[in-house]
Each structure stands twice: as structure tokens, then as C-alpha cells.
């Protein structure tokens, strides 16, 4: 779930905006200039994937996928998520204009953490990778929900009730997301394992020679 405009106090909205712009710039710097079309195409893919609705009881939820984005993109995940959120807010008004920074932190930080975690824990066998993927997928959503609750709680005591409820409402999503992430990773291991090869293992020196434009 995204925070919409008008909920957070202006100081928090501006502060999170500045922080996420800084992280996004770092994220863009860490990915070579020539990789940006790839980041763009992948953010579009994740955007579309998040439109897929899964029936859950009387309602339906849509996948958030922060864990998977992190695992696939490494440091570029933050940029991809920020772009996805910008598009969502420009096109559909999911999330908002002034709350963009807060939403980016909410989804992007867990993505970075889960990506790192996935690359360290994943091991070799398909089963283990799927289980790690599921774990990271669930953890990503849990992290987002926690950050959402913290941001709401920081907005004043009036929002404590909403914060608790939002955290509670995310718990079923965590389970669904974990299972889906496990299946996605297991599919990728079978079909195109090189996608899961860690962007995190790339050192900066390995990236640098590519950043010069080829003429």
C-alpha cells in the first residue's frame, strides 16, 4: 500500500524526498550509463507485474515484488523502484506527488536489503534458491510495512491506530508475496539462471571502464 498525499507532515514529506533522491542518485551512479535503458525496461516490467491481481478471500491484492527487484537489480533496484512509483503516481495516482519520497524509501530500502541478503544466502541448489527467494520476498513486504508504520507513527499520535492497522493488513500480503516470490525465483533458476547473477558482486572498478561513451 502506498501513502497518499496529505497524510504525512510537510517536514517528513520533504525530508524523505531529499533522502530518496540522494539514494536514487547513488543508485544511478552505481549502474553504468549504458545500463540505464535496461533499468528502464525492467522498471516497466515490474510496473506491469504489479498490476497482476491475486484473489485473496473477498478482495484481491497485487504483487509488490520489492525483494525480487532487489535480487535482480542490486544497487540499481532503488532507481527502478523510484521510477516505477513515479509512473504509478503519474498514471494512476497510486501514491502521491508529495509523498513520492516516502513511498520510494518504503519500497526501495527493503529492496536493497533483500537483494543483498538474497545474494549472500542463496547457495546453489534450486530448492535453496527458491526458499531464499521466498524468504526475501516476504521480508521485503514486511520491511515496507514496517517503514510505512514508522512513517505514520512519526506523523503524530493521531496516526498510531492507522499505523497498527496498516501493519496488520500487510501480514497476509507477506505470506502471499513470499510464496509467489519463491515460485518466481524457482522459475528463473530453471529458465534463465544468469538473471539472478548478482549485480552486487560487481565491483566499482569493473563498472567504470564501461561508463565512457563509445565513439
Amino acid at each position: 500500500m502506498h501513502i497518499s498525499d496529505g497524510v504525512l507532515p510537510t517536514t517528513i514529506a520533504l525530508g524523505t524526498g531529499v533522502v530518496s533522491l540522494a539514494i536514487a542518485t547513488w543508485s544511478a551512479k552505481r549502474s553504468p550509463a549504458e545500463d540505464l535503458p535496461k533499468v528502464a525496461v525492467i522498471s516497466a516490467a515490474f510496473f506491469v507485474a504489479s498490476l497482476v491481481h491475486i484473489p485473496l478471500g473477498p478482495t484481491s491484492i497485487h504483487l509488490l515484488l520489492p525483494g525480487i527487484v532487489g535480487a535482480l537489480l542490486g544497487p540499481a533496484a532503488f532507481l527502478a523502484i523510484l521510477l516505477g512509483l513515479v509512473l504509478q503516481s503519474l498514471l494512476f495516482q497510486f501514491g502521491g506527488l508529495t509523498a513520492l519520497g516516502a513511498n520510494a524509501l518504503m519500497m526501495g530500502l527493503p529492496a536493497l536489503a533483500c537483494g543483498l541478503l538474497f545474494q549472500t544466502l542463496r547457495g546453489q541448489s534450486r530448492k535453496r534458491q527458491a526458499i531464499t527467494g521466498a524468504f526475501c520476498g516476504g521480508l521485503g513486504v514486511l520491511g515496507s510495512a514496517l517503514i510505512l508504520a514508522i512513517l505514520l507513527a512519526l506523523s503524530g499520535e493521531d496516526f498510531l491506530g492507522v499505523a497498527k492497522l496498516a501493519l496488520l493488513a500487510h501480514l497476509p500480503v507477506v505470506v502471499i508475496e513470499a510464496i509467489a516470490a519463491g515460485f518466481i525465483v524457482s522459475f528463473l533458476v530453471r529458465v534463465k539462471p544468469e538473471l539472478l547473477e548478482a549485480p552486487f558482486t560487481l565491483r566499482k572498478e569493473q563498472i567504470l571502464p564501461d561508463t565512457k561513451p563509445k565513439r
Binding site: I42, A45, A49, I54, I179, A180, F183, I184, V185, V191
Partner: peptide, 30 residues
């Protein structure tokens, strides 16, 4: 979409396939 476990597996494969296709497309686009 309906029975939960099967639906999730199919949708997982669906999203995985979407990612694979988009990655392959990025190379062509680039």
C-alpha cells in the same frame, strides 16, 4: 484464477516469464 496454491504457482511463472522476456527485450532494445 481461483484455488490459491495453483494460482500462485501459475502467476509466479507468469511474472517470471514476463521478466525473462523483458530482459531479453532489453538486449535487443539496447
Amino acid at each position: 484464477p481461483g484455488r490459491r496454491w495453483d494460482t500462485l504457482r501459475d502467476l509466479g511463472n507468469f511474472v517470471g516469464m514476463l521478466l525473462v522476456r523483458s530482459f531479453e527485450r532489453t538486449h535487443r532494445v539496447y
